[in-house]
Design a protein around this nucleic acid. Sequence first.
DNA 1: TTGTATGCGTTATCAC
DNA 2: GTGATAACGCATACAA
Lengths: 328, 328
Amino acid sequence: MATISDVAKLAGLSRSTVSRVLNNYPHVSEEKKKLVTEAMKELEYYPNSSARILRSQKTNTIAVFIPMLTNPFFSYLLEGIDTVATENGFRLLVCQTRYNPEKELQYFKLLKSKQVDGIILTSIENSWNDIKGYASCGPVVICNEYAAGANVPNVRLDQVYGGYIGTRHLIEKGHRRIAYCRGSFQSGIAKDREKGYQQAMTEYGLTIEEGWYFRTAADYHDGKRVMRQMFDMRERPTAVFTGSDQVAAGIIFEAKQLGLNVPQDIAVIGFDDQPIAEMIVPQITTIRQPVHEIGESAMRLMISIILEREAPDKKPPLGLDLIVRAST
Amino acid sequence: MATISDVAKLAGLSRSTVSRVLNNYPHVSEEKKKLVTEAMKELEYYPNSSARILRSQKTNTIAVFIPMLTNPFFSYLLEGIDTVATENGFRLLVCQTRYNPEKELQYFKLLKSKQVDGIILTSIENSWNDIKGYASCGPVVICNEYAAGANVPNVRLDQVYGGYIGTRHLIEKGHRRIAYCRGSFQSGIAKDREKGYQQAMTEYGLTIEEGWYFRTAADYHDGKRVMRQMFDMRERPTAVFTGSDQVAAGIIFEAKQLGLNVPQDIAVIGFDDQPIAEMIVPQITTIRQPVHEIGESAMRLMISIILEREAPDKKPPLGLDLIVRAST
DNA sequence: TTGTATGCGTTATCAC
DNA sequence: GTGATAACGCATACAA
């Protein structure tokens, strides 16, 4: 592999001049520039990244912590993050935590060892107390989640409202016995939605039975299980609020298996408006989240923080304009 | 941030000794080792990655080229790749080509600029002629695809067979007018499946009408479109072979919309056995590919190539044992 | 406008 | 068993 010295030698110039051409510096004569360009082409020269990084202390790489790649919600989120990253010349290092706190802490070392310029968290598996030590040595942005005590930038929607409008929708359809599903792990947004659910129920003077809470429902198969559990209840709920369209799909599938009519016997409301929501019959009523946009905003936020670090004087014009778009 | 020199200074030793401790070298007295370890802890020292990379010429990072993260097939593939990568201390740089040839060529520069140790291709957007220049400067593994003229390692299943058994299944169910769907881009595996389709049809003495070929069907919405097109045909096919469960799902949805019974009026066979295949009603008959295992094998292959480069003498024990598991 | 010299943080090769 | 030193490839302050 050719180095900058090889190019300099072939062009009959110094390494600095080559470097200047490489980085589009002004004050380089056209003549020398051409000489350098030709030499680079001749040698098929590509600047060595690690050397550049070591020198500049910038990796142009962002780590994205994701619980599970195969969860469609997160792949759409990642897609949004990637869109903005690519546009701005950033690379993405994918870190699957697999809901594992230790893995998460492990990945934080990427920041310590300067392998990435920043970290975007799309889930949080540890208490913020255990994390905050890492967050101090580089920009961390939390995306679609939040943690008690975390004082880092944060992009997310009003999930209390999401839980509220979903539940209200069911109540207005005439339901009184409404169950509530969410994933198992400690999640700020799940708690918020639960708050919204309770808020709506209270507002309409409805009391919640403890048996209506299903707090370990994260995917399609969980949904099926929940439906079977509900089926066996003496007085079963007539509607369910779920934290994801996957769970909703599972419930609907199993309901049909059990000979129930959806939504007459059991009404289901999903979350996120993922493709699956319109693929099954009947289609799932769902709360749309602009997942892609959330991802984009998180990355934009990250970039603006990085730019600000480099040039603390000029504030970058950042426009965060997320809104809840509900389509029940 | 503390450097190795800071640690050396605090421990009252030389950088070399610190480095030796860091890399678990033998011939370091327990006494000094303890001294170093304590100093490292005291200073919260983390070795700088780029410096290490610059020195060692190894990034421990693999780039994975993927057309679209939101395509479930690829997220499962990526998940498989990630599993083995993580187990072996490798990082993954995700490169979404978005089916764009130029983006793909752009990403190949990662290898040239030594930002990654190797590249795993899960799709190919350029002719191999345009790519081969890049493939020469580092290990490239093709995963679940192949390209004419490419002489690089390759992990994939027998897609001719896949096309064959799928079509044969439909024929044995009594179908004679069988349509064929595949994605639009140049793909070796799509061509192979088509070959298998033709092979089965010929074997049973059936002739194929040109109108039965749908060569731009890649996702759910394409499936819906294809179904509408078929619906308008004078003599429409009674069965369809599709290249993905997404397309199959679209066809089934639209068929039901149009008042057709599945599979009585129109039988559909999918590919990959993705979650969606069992989520809809009726469930999709599909050809299972062990996607996760394919990804794992590709990464294992990559690692074995890298190891061999480092130590050309000792051949690593690589066990590639992919088999076609059909569950129609 | 161009060249010289230095340092980014490590590791490997020598000496001792 | 330990330490000094060079080198990895590049970018920049400074000198010319």
